[in-house]
Each structure stands twice: as structure tokens, then as C-alpha cells.
Write a protein that binds this DNA or RNA. Structure first.
Lengths: 233, 233
DNA sequence: CGTAGTATTGAAACGGATCAATATCTGTGG
DNA sequence: CCACAGATATTGATCCGTTTCAATACTACG
């Protein structure tokens, strides 16, 4: 949302989800700006497909992206949602591991992976930022795995809402949580059926814990019970 | 298993799970040897506890370590098993995220985290190795999450055995898979009850897919059906 | 060789998946 | 701006598998 060609919008400049991410120096910004391409794409745009050859690493600057795998059974498993500040482009043996698709209109920075590798190998400080970023993704993945260990659908959904909430920059007193993705996406992320997610949402409403305003905004009505439910891992 | 103080046993020197890990140069080995401490500990030793202050990063050189979190409900969720070549010591805000405990007798290298950080910041090549390692852990975590998305216990267990098998250095023709951890550990990793794991093992046996020799060795009897089951995600 | 932790097996109940029908939303063109 | 159509979501009923509870068997370690 910063106008012009400024690299300020590159996500390194902000904190995400509670960990302190050091700010990029101007030198680093310039370095990245020299090799990055800014892209604005509409929702549903596919950025790359699984098993296609790795060519770019991406930075999400604005909007939400989902990373998923198509399973042999035809089901799809969403590995992660990428928010502002997240990097993505995970590959194995030179092939992307997931397919990534814009959930909302998205602004990303795209850097050729070989160029990025070169820059990183020459600049340990910058590389350290990446190490931090990937470590952060690792924590997110482990956290998701813990959530998937839960049996109860309502608890999983509540925990998911917490994730979304923590991703925000905690506007004080803001009780509304934007839920940009579809129920189907949530189901695929939580390892539940669409119906189970729908029923879980209803249950949270019925019990006076969460209220939904349309399908894309949630309000935590009873914070105490909400927190209890989330903590009841 | 290499005798003496050689740093050769440091895990960077071998490939893990299919990704090509570049060998460490002698210079890098020397650099790490200067700050690393080799430790041999018996099974069940706790290496660090969750929420304790980060002080070391570990390298697993020999044996199996589990990383888990104690959940408020009293259950425990195993985030990962660390095998030969894996690094561990994930922290958030300066506190370890998991508790780690030796499953078998273990040989690890322990490096003070601040020293390691210093070395990495001065050596991009070495740092790149770490980036690769962490990325590898990230893939493992995402893979686990996909497994947890499965509903059927037998499929989860079979997939788990596959993981263990791929971790091996593929001795050609070796049909036996060592299963060093307990059934309870497997249950905590797969998000199943102990009973479900036990029944799943029995089912695999009954259907002539896997045979167990004691509780810590598995043989894949019918590879075709085994692979089908694993692929049936 | 005994004992405590670990694992197996059985029976019952809960909860989510699935199938099916209906409702609501979203984006497109009139 | 409205109407329509396809996609997305809700709700209901039934089925199936895992959890839980409980009793017994095994195994590993001192």
C-alpha cells in the first residue's frame, strides 16, 4: 500500500506473530530491490504449481496466499496460509512442494531463486533474516500440527481464529477478526470436512463464544470461554 | 561412532531424507569443532525443557531424540523425532519451544547459541547450510501435518513407518525397519490414542502387509499393498 | 526374578465423515 | 441496479472409526 517503487513494503520491515524481526537496513533494502519484482495479482491467481521447477522465492507484502497440495484421493490439504511478511517458495530437489494461490488480491515480491541465493551467500546479515523467517515458518507448521492433534472441531476452529487474530497488528480493542478464506479452505487446513467446519462455527455461535458477521468476519463475544476452549488442547 | 574428537561425525557431512546436503569444508568443520561440545547421553535424558532459556543449539550425531510439548490437558504432543543429521533447539523469544529427550542412547554436539550466531553471521556459506537444514525441518513438519490430516489409523502408521525407512541409508534389500520409539511415542506423534496405534499395527499384520518382530522391528511383507496404503492420502 | 511401566485386547459411546437436500453468496451480464 | 447461475455453505440423518474405560498380558530394568 505504500505508493511507488519503494522497497519499504517488503515484509522484512515488520514484526509478525510475536517474534521480533529486526528491521532491514537500507543497504539490504536496496540489495533486494535490485533483484525483486513487485507483482499485484487478483484473487485466485496461481503463483506456481507443485512439482514445477523452482524459479522464484516470494514475499507476501499484502493480502493472503494459500499453499496446498493436491492429494491422490482428490482431496486437498492446505499446508499454510501466508500473510503479510511471510516468505514462500519451498522446494525440494528443485521442484516446488506446494501449489500457491492468492486468496485475496495480493501484492508479492518475486526474486529469482538463484539470484537470491547468490546475494545471501555474500551477505550473512541478510541471510540471517531469512534463517529467522524460515524458522518462523517452522514454528507455524509445528503449531498447526498440534492443532491437528485435537479431536474436537470447535476447538480446532477456535484455535484457527486465534492464529488469524495474532497475525493482526493488535489494534487495541479491535474485537473483529477478518477471515479472508472460505470455509472450504479452513476445512482443508484443519483436516476437517466442510460440514464439520460449518457446524463448529454454528456451535461457537450457539454457545455465545463467537459471533459471525457474514462469513468473513468473526467477533469473539466471550473472551474467557474462548481462551479456555483454545487452551484446552 | 567415529572415534576421538573428530568433528567428522557432525551431521553436516551426510545426506538426509533425499535432499542433497553439501558437505562441510574442512574450514567449516574446524570452525564448528572450536565451539561445539560432544555429549554422549543415555536414553531418557532430557536435553532441555520447553520454556527454559535458549542456550544451545544441538546436532544429532547418533541415536534418536524426540521433541514434544506438554499440553494443558496432560496429553503430550510429539512435534518431531530427530535422527542422525538433524539439528534442534528451536526457540521463540529466547525460550525453547519444545522439551527434547533422548529416545535411545544419543551422541549430540552442543553449540552455545550466541556463539553459533556469531559464527554464522561471519560465514555465509556455513549459514547457508543451516538455512538448508531448517528448510528440511520445515518440510518434515509440513509432511507430518499432511499425515495428521488422514482419518485412518492404519494409514497413518504405515506412513510413519515409511518415514522411518526413508531416514535410513537405504541398505539395499534391507526389509527391516527399526522402530526405536515406544508405541506411546508413536501415538503422541500421530495424534492417536495408544490403543489405536496398537490396533493399527495388528491390522497391518492381519492383512499381511507388515510383520513385527518384537515391538521395535518392522518388516514390510507386501510392498505393493504397503505403498498403496501410504499413497492413499 | 520381581515389579512398574508399557502394550494388547474387548466393549461401549461419542464425534466427525458422508450422503443428500436446501439455502446463501458472488460475480457476471442484461 | 437487478436477476441469474454456478459455486459455496448450511442443515439434517445415518454410518463408521476412533476414543474411552476397563481388564489382562507383556517386557524391560533394577
Amino acid at each position: 500500500m505504500t505508493g511507488g517503487p519503494s522497497i519499504r513494503a517488503v515484509p522484512f520491515s515488520k514484526s509478525t506473530g510475536g517474534i521480533a524481526v529486526r528491521l532491514l537496513s537500507d543497504r539490504h533494502r536496496r540489495q533486494l530491490a535490485a533483484i525483486a519484482t513487485r507483482m499485484r495479482v487478483p484473487a485466485r491467481t496461481i503463483l506456481y504449481r507443485e512439482d514445477s521447477p523452482l524459479s522464484w522465492i516470494f514475499f507476501n507484502s499484502e493480502g493472503v496466499v494459500k499453499a496446498f497440495r493436491e492429494l491422490p484421493s482428490g482431496k486437498r490439504s492446505i499446508a499454510a496460509f501466508l500473510f503479510q511478511g511471510d516468505i514462500f517458495g519451498l522446494a525440494e530437489n528443485g521442484l516446488y512442494v506446494n501449489t500457491t494461490q492468492a486468496v485475496t488480491p495480493v501484492t508479492v515480491y518475486r526474486i529469482p531463486s538463484d539470484l537470491l541465493t547468490d546475494v545471501l551467500r555474500r551477505d550473512p546479515e541478510l541471510e540471517f533474516h531469512f534463517l529467522t523467517k524460515v524458522t518462523h515458518e517452522l514454528r507455524k507448521a509445528q503449531h498447526r500440527a498440534i492443532v491437528l492433534g485435537r479431536r474436537d472441531a470447535a476447538g480446532r476452529l477456535a484455535t484457527f481464529l486465534t492464529m488469524l487474530e495474532k497475525g493482526l497488528l493488535h489494534k487495541t480493542g479491535a474485537t473483529s477478526i477478518p477471515v479472508p478464506m472460505s470455509r472450504t479452505d479452513i476445512a482443508n487446513y484443519l483436516g476437517l470436512s466442510l460440514e464439520a467446519v460449518s457446524r463448529a462455527a454454528r456451535q461457537l455461535t450457539r454457545e455465545g463464544i463467537v459471533e459471525f458477521e457474514g462469513r468473513h468476519i468473526a467477533h469473539v463475544v466471550n473472551r474467557a470461554r474462548f481462551d479456555t476452549l483454545v487452551a484446552a488442547l
